[in-house]
């Protein structure tokens, strides 16, 4: 059981809300989908690979046959799933400091939602409603979302550069090569293992037999 796969952390949060509230929340999500400026903070934060919010009405719980009892729920439930880089604290703290209003509108009027500031009650709210992941898979555990996006740019630049310099003289090549390096100056850092973000992460690493650079 681990919420961690390399540089990614899997968060699952499930919180109740009233049916009427879901209407407003859906409207906010709809607006956020239409207006890119709503998520500018999330984009700039650049800690998330993929995240999603799912609002479940009682009737949305799948019912697959008579052997399964029917759910009898009053509340709707909001499920939040995120794949983010960094530690739990970094993520929750960054969320709370950079996009408090966005966060509060997404969880608006969920039962006993605390608002994201002050932070300690918000920490407790998330911890209380979080479910641990039993098995987590990440196709690129040594890459953060920054790395994935930067890698796409590197590849496209290399393909274009290789084509455009196929018949270049050495001097022309050098000029274009220097331009390439300049345009990729923020994309040429090496990737590797994640730092140990928590003591449970270090325990997972030990189980996987991961040797850390510099560990003597």
């Amino acid at each position: 059981m681990s919420n961690i796969a390399g540089k990614a952390y899997a968060m699952n949060v499930i919180t109740p809300l009233k049916w009427l509230t879901t209407l407003r929340t859906r409207l906010i999500f709809w607006g956020a989908g239409k207006l890119p400026s709503t998520t500018l903070g999330l984009v700039t934060l650049s800690l998330i690979h993929y995240a999603r919010w799912v609002i479940l009405r009682p009737k949305d719980f799948p019912h697959l046959g008579p052997e399964q009892p029917k759910e009898d729920l009053q509340y709707c439930y909001m499920l939040f799933f995120s794949n983010f880089n960094g530690s739990w604290d970094q993520y929750v703290d960054s969320f709370s400091s950079t996009i408090p209003t966005g966060l509060d509108s997404f969880w608006y009027k969920n039962i006993k939602y605390t608002n994201s500031i002050p932070m300690l009650p918000f920490h407790r709210y998330i911890t209380w409603n979080q479910i641990w992941t039993d098995n987590y898979y990440n196709a690129y555990p040594m890459a953060s979302t920054n790395d994935v996006k930067s890698a796409q740019k590197v590849r496209q630049n290399l393909i274009d550069f290789a084509r455009s310099t196929a018949n270049a003289t050495p001097d022309d090549f050098q000029r274009q090569y220097n331009k390439l390096l300049l345009s990729l100056q923020h994309d040429l850092s090496q990737m590797g293992l994640n730092p140990v973000v928590s003591l449970s992460a270090s325990a997972v690493d030990r189980r996987l037999g991961k040797e850390r650079r510099g560990v003597s």
Binding site: K7, S46, N85, G86, D89, Q90, S144, N146, D147, S150, H186, S189, Q190, M191, G192, L193, P195, V196, V197, R213, G214
Partner: peptide, 29 residues
């Protein structure tokens, strides 16, 4: 601990993958 770990011995917040602080980073040998 955050500054020491994420900002000195790692680089993701600066979009620098695993690069470390050139001065107090732990560059191993």
């Amino acid at each position: 601990e955050f500054v020491q770990q994420q900002w000195i011995t790692f680089g993701n917040d600066f979009k620098l993958a695993n690069d470390q602080d050139p001065l107090p980073g732990n560059h191993g040998t």
